[in-house]
Design a protein around this nucleic acid. Structure first.
Lengths: 152, 152
DNA sequence: CGCTGGATTTAGAATTATTCCAAATCTTGA
DNA sequence: TCAAGATTTGGAATAATTCTAAATCCAGCG
């Protein structure tokens, strides 16, 4: 469950897609490339915009389809957000997310190594993976908030 | 940050709303009651349906408004889900959530006591709270999956 | 006790995010 | 090379949430 990610990163995209029961297509490759080029957390819409740069004919429906395939193959993570569009994360290393509750940005968060499973589940539940998240203010929004308070 | 929840539970709804800058209204009280009557994780739509039982004239927009107010006052939690409608959780004790990736149900999950903060954030980030979640199969879906595999 | 301003409710319209659809195109395996 | 099935595309449809404007309610004030 922990980290086969080193090995996974090396395996060619084609193989991972095939293993997941998907075909390799130029669109899927392109979406994957666009996503891994930057270590941020774009929405499907943002991926679409970036993808159009190198592949102008790609459609939004295809971007959704590709993202879905990539997530199912474990090549990309989908991060759950409270409101608004889903975001995608190309970082497959074990890590958590920090959510700024003011501006909505998402940051990758290192987890202390070797923490082990954070919980033991009752009988019958099968855990596939854990998610650890923190909510609060990012540096920018924390600073802005302090200013407002000082002024008022 | 940990658990003032015992004290909070006792404080009357009116007070908590006022403290949060909201007025006490029959609708907000009703939505809160409906939500705390059951320890599950309904969507806004489901809360709306339950709320109409005792208050037939309430509107969906009001339910959204009430939920928003309750969340902002710390009387209810909003849980982030990967897809579909947001869910609300009346359990304000410290706990995690288990998400069944097959049927989408959400279960409360006890956390081992006194774990402490799961991470230390880089300078500039202010953490308000943590969220610990597990994904996998719930007992029902785990069983169903096994059957399918056996059959095929 | 009646007014006034601002908060709240309501119903419905509008918006946002995502999924569905059908036709055209592409891929894979025989 | 062909056929079957997967994929892409653009647009329509759906789902979830937010916005809007008018009506109502409430607290504080004179």
């Amino acid at each position: 469950m922990r980290s086969a990610s080193r090995k996974q990163d090396q395996e060619p995209l084609t193989q991972r897609l095939t293993d997941g029961g998907f075909r390799f297509t130029p669109q899927r490759e392109h979406v994957y490339t666009v996503l891994t080029e930057r270590r941020d957390h774009p929405t499907a819409e943002e991926v679409f915009i970036r993808a159009k740069k190198g592949m102008p004919e790609i459609s939004l429906a295809t971007v959704y389809n590709c993202l879905d395939a990539l997530v199912k193959c474990g090549l990309v993570k989908q991060v759950a957000v409270q409101r608004g569009a889903a975001r995608f994360c190309p970082n497959m290393e074990e890590h958590g997310h920090f959510y700024c509750d003011v501006c909505g940005s998402v940051f990758d968060m290192e987890l202390p190594a070797g923490q082990g499973a954070p919980v033991t589940m009752p009988k019958g539940f099968t855990v596939d993976h854990y998610e650890i998240a923190a909510h609060g203010f990012c540096p920018d929004c924390g600073a802005r908030k302090k200013n407002v308070e000082t002024i008022s």
